[in-house]
């Protein structure tokens, strides 16, 4: 590249100069996109569940950008948010493709209403930097989420849906880094000072009620045998990871008291927490304000 004319490459449209990339179609280049012989509505709904988990947690993590305790953490949390955003784009695109009604990733992210989002509550609750938590809570959530996703994606690698299998295989490498990053902070904060220990314990207590939902199967997941993962199978693996990290951190495992459901329903059913409407209002506002706009 020439340093003499900063504008010379302006019109050239390739995507290779970003540290983490912005495109995604290449990420699954060569992957078979055939839809397996299952109920299409169920498969599309399942892709939305996984895609929404990643999209919404990505949004929450990005809220830290310019607010982290160290610049290194601004970089790391943005990096994790970008990984999850990348996963969500692949999954939402697959959902739209399976559904077959012409909805792309943006139609699904920006034009669905609250009741049509299928993410678990753990992804959407506020865990800092704003009200509802702090850096310890954020890492408690990230540890639980990534340990759970790793258990889910490692089984999903053998899904009968070739796209889900490919997304899972790619995502696992990213999630392993996310889990390690969170685990290191849980240990540091659990061990560090009296204040950090107290905050870390409070952070765990904040997120623990949302664990149960992660292992509660939704009928869609159960109907998609061979394609989807039954979340009830993941519990012992995730518990093992969490117990190991908590023990290294000198922290006690909080008592399991699952968050109460509303009429027996939760995130997978499209029933969310009060905070979620605000998140969507912010995320979707601009896209909805300018119908027909090109971005």
């Amino acid at each position: 590249m020439s340093f003499d004319n900063a504008y010379e490459s302006l019109i050239d449209h390739e995507d290779t100069h970003w540290a983490f990339g912005t495109g995604f179609s290449e990420a699954l280049a060569g992957v078979d996109r055939e839809v397996p012989d299952v109920d299409r509505a169920d498969l599309a709904a399942y892709c939305l569940m996984l895609g929404d988990d990643a999209l919404i947690l990505s949004h929450r993590l990005a809220e830290w950008c310019s607010r982290a305790p160290e610049l290194e953490e601004d970089v790391a949390l943005a990096n994790i948010a970008l990984d999850l955003l990348g996963q969500s784009r692949l999954l939402l695109t697959r959902a739209g493709e399976v559904e077959g009604e012409g909805r792309d990733e943006d139609a699904l992210a920006f034009l669905r209403d609250e009741r049509d989002f299928r993410n678990v509550h753990l992804a959407e609750i506020e865990c800092g930097p704003f009200a509802g938590g702090d850096f310890a809570t954020t890492n408690a959530r990230l540890l639980v989420f990534s340990a759970w996703k790793i258990a889910q994606y490692s089984r999903l690698r053998s899904s009968a849906d070739p796209v889900l299998a490919a997304v899972a295989a790619k995502g696992l490498k990213e999630l392993a880094y996310h889990r390690d990053h969170a685990a290191q902070w849980v240990v540091r904060l659990g061990d560090g000072t009296d204040e950090s220990h107290r905050r870390m314990r409070a952070g765990l207590e904040r997120v623990w009620p949302f664990l149960d939902e992660l292992f509660t199967p939704h009928p869609v997941e159960l109907r998609l045998a061979g394609v989807a993962v039954d979340p009830a199978e993941l519990r012992s693996e995730v518990d093992g990871v969490l117990d190991a990290v908590l023990s290294a951190a000198g922290l006690e495992r909080p008592v399991d008291v699952p968050a109460a459901r509303v009429n027996g329903l939760a995130g997978r059913d499209g029933v969310h927490t009060e905070a979620f409407g605000y998140l969507l209002a912010e995320m979707q506002h601009l896209h909805r304000s300018l119908p027909g706009a090109k971005w």
């Binding site: 983490f20 912005t22 990005a62 943005a78 955003l85 784009r89 943006d106 920006f110 912010e282 601009l286």
Partner: peptide, 14 residues
């Protein structure tokens, strides 16, 4: 938090 497409959100965050 208000980026109008997922691609733009990824670009801006990066």
């Amino acid at each position: 938090s208000r980026a109008p497409s997922l691609r733009r959100k990824a670009i801006l965050l990066a």
